[in-house]
Design a protein around this nucleic acid. Sequence first.
DNA 1: GTCTATAAGTAGATAGAC
DNA 2: GTCTATCTACTTATAGAC
Lengths: 215, 215
Amino acid sequence: MAKPAAPRPTTGPGSKERGKTRALLIEAGLHLFSRKGFDGVSVAELEAAVGLKAGSGSFYRHFSDKEALLKALMEQEIESARARRSHELDALADADRDTRSALLAQFRLTLRGMRDNLERANLLSRGAEHFPELKAEVRQRLVQDALESIARVYRQRIQAGELIDVDPQALAVVVQNALYGYAVAEAGFGSPADPQAEDDAFVNAMVSMLLREGR
Amino acid sequence: MAKPAAPRPTTGPGSKERGKTRALLIEAGLHLFSRKGFDGVSVAELEAAVGLKAGSGSFYRHFSDKEALLKALMEQEIESARARRSHELDALADADRDTRSALLAQFRLTLRGMRDNLERANLLSRGAEHFPELKAEVRQRLVQDALESIARVYRQRIQAGELIDVDPQALAVVVQNALYGYAVAEAGFGSPADPQAEDDAFVNAMVSMLLREGR
DNA sequence: GTCTATAAGTAGATAGAC
DNA sequence: GTCTATCTACTTATAGAC
């Protein structure tokens, strides 16, 4: 036979651990693409960021081109974004909490999560333009699933007479988009003079709107 | 005297109207930067878009460099965005309308305005990163002024007992950010299966959250 | 897996004729 | 105000030595 090739030991002598540089490139791409945009980051910059010589072209031993890195990165991020999000739902779903503090806790956690991961979200959003086949998946698994999980909890609280009697899915859409828009606007246009006070007024207003209580 | 120079006739013989190509470049920059990002548009592309020969460098007779175009463009946009916005407020401020239909009209108009001008808003947001001195102005004159105008109207409706009694400025923040986030998410992650139904549920939920009555 | 070297293309920007 | 021509720098990507 012409191919008695040994079972391809991906870890050859003298190499680092299996796929280490590749993983580092994905991480570097996440940070750099998020900050400077896909077009704003050169392959040389990515190489330098992981300890390769800038301009050496060593990048191409790990990815066929820059787009391949973006795609690998997005597929990884879709997974990890889901994991991060389910965490935020725990506070809301905790049935032992009274409704007001459960809502407050959810809003604050979600707002923090959106702030911490906005650049990742922007990357997913912009990356979806490069890969139309991933766009529907991003929407369904990140946006739609989250809304339905939240709506489920709202529905229970409505039936218990604790929230205003409005379509729970629509309530979730309003709340999530308000939090998202708040984080996006803050990142894009800058923070207000007193961010802490603004945050408090914002989340408390949403709680009041859902509970339909005056001040 | 060494300078008897005539009063600089900006329109020389054989030239088009004063500043016409410059104005065209600003317009082309608005569309192209919005769609493809600042880095994604070459000077040659801008030249071609206004009828100049691509790569001729004629661009540089009108702007010192690409950033100068972005800056001129932003200053113009800050003005026109204000004008567009005041239009959306008319529907809300119309005291003859009953509260429910005034809110509905405002939400629908604002949502339409945000959809139509999201790319412009993104451009202002991203441009503000290039020009930190413009960032505070963008925030104050576009974001903050709009919120205060809306809050003024809400305050009247609250005093008339028609809206829930919650800090009107905070209500405006929730509503505007929900509309903004909705438009941003739609542009980034794609539309839902039935956009019309989704829109209706969304704006109606917001109305229900603001009115004192249940549905 | 990383390096040197380099090809081939594109970007921003300038000089000078018309 | 637009053109031709050109410069420099940078970017993607490949070939081949180690």
